[in-house]
Every structure is written in C-alpha cells, then in structure tokens.
C-alpha cells in the first residue's frame, strides 16, 4: 500500500528515467543518421550507376528551381546594393559598392540563399515523395523485386542535390551581381566593364573555393536530410507531412550551423 512518503519518493525516481529515455532516443536517432550517411557513401559509388535517373533528378532539382533562384538572386543583389549605398556614401565611398557586393555575394549570400531556397523547394519535395512511397509500400515493392531502393531513391537524390546546388549557387551569384550592377549603373552611371573589374578585384581564389565547398556541403545536407526524413517516415499520411516539414526545418537549421563552421575554418586560411 502506498504511504504519502512512498508516493513522494516516486517522483525523483521517474525523472531520471524520462531524461534517460529522451537521451537514449537522441543517441539512437544520431546513430541512425550516421548509419544512413555511411550507407550512402558505401552504395553511391558502386555500379549500377543509374545515370538516366540521376540526370532526371538533376533536372528536377536544378532546372525547376532556376526561376525561383533567378528571381531571388536578382532581388538580393539589387536590394543589398541599394541598402548598402547610404552607409558607404556617408564616407564618400560609394565607389566601393561593386567590391562590397561581390564579396558579400560570393562569400555568403549566394550559397546561403540558394541553399535555403533549395531546402524549401527540394528538401520538402524529397521528404514528401519518399515518405509517401514508404507509406504506400512502394519502397517495399522495390525491395522485394530485387531492386535496391536505397541506391535508386536515396543515393540518386542526394547526388543530384550535391551536384546541382553548387551550379545553382554560381548562377545565383551571377544574377545577384547583375542586380547589383543595374542599381549601381542607374545611380552612379558605372559602365559594365568597370563594374566587373571592380567586382573581381577583391575576390581571391579562396573565395570561389569556399563558395563551392559550402554549396557542395549544403547540397549534400539538403539531400541527405530530405531523404532520411522521407525514407524513415512513420506510417500514415500524417507521417508524410511531418517528414516534409521536418526535412525543411532540419536542413535549414543545419545549413546555418554549417555556414558558421565553414566560415570559421576558411578564416584560418585567410
């Protein structure tokens, strides 16, 4: 029989159990993610290579995101230039605008904006598509017919985002600089050749390299997170929605963390 004392004693006993369960859950999730990533590296680079499907996925990720990337990149370049002008003009340094724009776009804005847009558009789509396939047993159907669904569905999509995001990012940088040029040309009357010369002047090889490395890491992250969430989604239509949502939120969060880490690492080499 419970005495008031014994009931009171139960409370502190339950708390560590809950905490332990939560910790165990987190570590299990982490272990599963690591296994998922290792499986990707184990299976992605061995035949059969599914080149046709890879091209189709690159088209899905790349070409279909192009419109949004173009619009966003252009607006980012234009607005960034417009907003930076007053601060620079206070010091009579508006001639530095092209350099400022190029450094900001190449080092941070282009890879970051591209990654965030791709995470929203493609990450959610991968999560929802694979989640739906899991729920309707299409992944099981692939497995029982002697096809490796991990390779066909996961590896191909992750490779597609890893290849395509750097290309999109480069394109976004080009369009953003164009947006900046239009603003500078309109206000300062700078010619295109002068603008371009000033754009490339402050950039080093490390800037291009770091931008490329960032985009590759972001692309891989978006693909692997979307695929992991979808491939392991729980049963039911609710699980599909959760997978899509969680793919976007997690990918965006990781992209910001990676941005900070990579900027720190690149800083050591400057």
């Amino acid at each position: 029989m419970d005495t008031p004392d014994s009931t009171a004693e139960q409370v502190p006993v339950k708390r560590p159990n809950k905490l332990a369960k939560s910790l165990a859950g987190t570590f299990t999730d982490l272990y599963n993610v690591v296994r998922f990533i290792l499986r990707f590296f184990k299976e992605a680079f061995v035949p059969p290579y599914e080149g046709k499907e890879l091209l189709r996925q690159c088209y899905e990720v790349g070409v279909r995101s192009l419109g949004l990337i173009t619009l966003t990149g252009f607006i980012v370049g234009l607005i960034f230039t417009k907003q930076s002008r007053p601060s620079l003009s206070e010091f009579g340094a508006t001639s530095w605008l092209p350099s400022l724009v190029s450094i900001a776009i190449m080092r941070a804005l282009a890879p970051l904006v591209t990654a965030l847009i791709t995470a929203g558009r493609v990450g959610s789509s991968i999560g929802a598509e694979l989640g739906s396939m899991r729920v309707t047993e299409q992944i099981d159907a692939m497995e029982v017919s002697g096809t490796n669904p991990f390779k066909y569905l996961v590896c191909i999509r992750v490779l597609a985002t890893t290849i395509t995001v750097p290309i999109l990012s480069t394109f976004a940088a080009f369009v953003a600089i164009l947006g900046g040029y239009l603003n500078v040309h309109q206000n300062e009357g700078t010619s295109y050749s002068t603008f371009i010369a000033q754009v490339f002047e402050p950039l080093s090889f490390l800037d291009f390299e770091s931008s490329l490395i960032k985009s590759i890491v972001f692309g891989f992250t978006i693909g692997i997170v979307g695929a992991y969430k979808g491939y392991n989604s729980s049963r039911g239509t609710e699980g599909v929605g959760k997978a899509a949502n969680s793919a976007v939120v997690t990918a965006m969060f990781l992209v910001f963390i990676e941005e900070i880490v990579i900027v720190q690492i690149i800083g050591w080499f400057r």
Binding site: E137, D140, S145
Partner: peptide, 19 residues
Amino acid sequence: LRDLRIKVGFSFQNSALYD
C-alpha cells in the same frame, strides 16, 4: 537475398504501384 527475391513475387494489399 536479392537473387532470392527475384524468385519470390509479392503482391501487396494496396498494389503498391509506383504512382
């Protein structure tokens, strides 16, 4: 397992067609 699965067909309850 992959080789064996080719010899064992599986017809799913909801057909599981690739939509």
